[in-house]
Simulated assay, not measured.
Amino acid sequence: MSVDLLKREIQEDIQREQEPQPALPADVFGRIGSMETRLARNSREIESAQAIRYKVFVEEMGATLPPEAMALRRDFDIYDEICDHLLVVDTALTGEPEEQIVGTYRLLRQEVAMANGGFYSASEYDVAPLLARHPEKRFMELGRSCVLPHYRTKRTVELLWQGNWAYALRHNMHAMFGCASFSGTDPKNHALALSFLHHTVGMKDEWAVSALPELFQSMDMMPLESINSKQALMALPPLIKGYLRLGAMVGNGAVVDQAFNTTDVLIVLPIESISGRYINYYGADAGRFGG
């Protein structure tokens, strides 16, 4: 039943065709109207992305960052130095490029992570066995996703995913993963949505991943037969719902992040599982980055 609902949403999303766009600069992954997606080009743009993260995570969601970050009003950590920073930029805004950034994602490739102490998600989930079971696959971690309130539209989400897809093609990635969040630190407040994820898209077998034992919070709070799928989908944060549309799976157990005032779940999205319609949708423009 949940699969049918998601399939209908996919069909509705993909019905319209993208209008032809002029040729894009080499470092731009996609463009819709005045907005485009690309990687940060310099430290000023990275700092601007960190300032947006501060506005969303601290001012809006109530996160508590280390004192230096709070003083500078920027969300940053050691991973920022090794990650690539995907941006959505509204070129219609006045000012320098760093003043036009309205959304961001942080991207970390497996070879970079392994050379620098591992993935961020490993602080919450036991991802090492997953990587070991797939030595032939190359993973990339998605994190710190945020968009300014005025720009939380379907168009912005499309651009972020077009950027993620193009980046994955460029670097020959086989799977994406990362933590996605529910607001607040009481998992019981999200019992319907968490139980729905547990029963319908939980990772199994070769893709199984669990929260670290000392952080594990059960997601199995309601039996499957008592879950209304439509209500559960409505209760999902837009980001997690978007992952599901693309064919994502969810790890076993949630994790409470007190600092960020969230309840996290681990999302894993094998590239081969992404709906063919979505591959066609994004791949038509992003395919030029595969070389």
Rank of each mutant, 00 (worst) to 15 (best):
T263H: 11
L233D: 05
T263E: 13
M234P: 00
Y167P: 09
I82E: 05
A113H: 11
R245T: 01
V102L: 12
G251N: 11
W165V: 03
A180V: 07
L194T: 01
A115F: 03
L24G: 10
G62I: 01
E124T: 06
M203G: 12
A168E: 13
Y151V: 06
I82F: 07
G276L: 12
N252L: 10
V250A: 01
A132N: 12
A128L: 15
K7A: 15
P270K: 04
S229V: 03
R144D: 02
D90M: 05
T262E: 06
A23D: 13
V157T: 04
R106M: 09
P213F: 11
M114N: 15
I14Q: 07
I279F: 03
R74T: 08
M249F: 14
I32M: 07
L266T: 12
G178S: 12
I279S: 15
A166L: 01
D90L: 02
L236F: 05
P66W: 01
R38S: 12
G95S: 00
Q11K: 12
I14W: 00
A193D: 04
R106P: 11
S275C: 10
L148E: 05
R31M: 10
T37Q: 03
R288N: 14
N280D: 15
L192C: 01
V3W: 11
Y151C: 05
R245E: 07
E60V: 10
I46F: 02
A191D: 05
P66A: 04
E17A: 15
N42F: 11
M222A: 11
L215I: 05
D80Q: 01
R74E: 02
R152L: 04
G163V: 09
V102Y: 10
L65Q: 09
P187I: 02
L107T: 09
V56Y: 01
C83P: 06
A254N: 08
Y282H: 13
L87S: 12
Q258V: 09
F260T: 00
Y278K: 10
P22K: 04
R73H: 07
M35E: 09
Y54D: 08
V256N: 00
F29S: 10
H174I: 03
K230M: 14
L169M: 13
G30D: 15
T156L: 08
V250C: 10
A248N: 05
K55P: 00
S183E: 13
L197H: 10
V201Y: 12
P238G: 00
V201I: 13
S229A: 15
V58L: 02
E9T: 09
G178Y: 02
H85V: 01
E9R: 01
L269A: 04
D220T: 03
Y151S: 00
M173N: 04
T94V: 13
Q162S: 09
L107Y: 13
A132T: 15
L215C: 02
Q231C: 09
Y125H: 09
T37N: 05
T200K: 13
E158I: 11
Q258C: 11
L236H: 03
L244M: 07
L86Y: 07
L72C: 10
M221W: 08
I279H: 13
K188V: 06
G247M: 08
L130G: 14
E81S: 08
L212S: 00
G95I: 12
E225R: 14
L266N: 04
G290C: 15
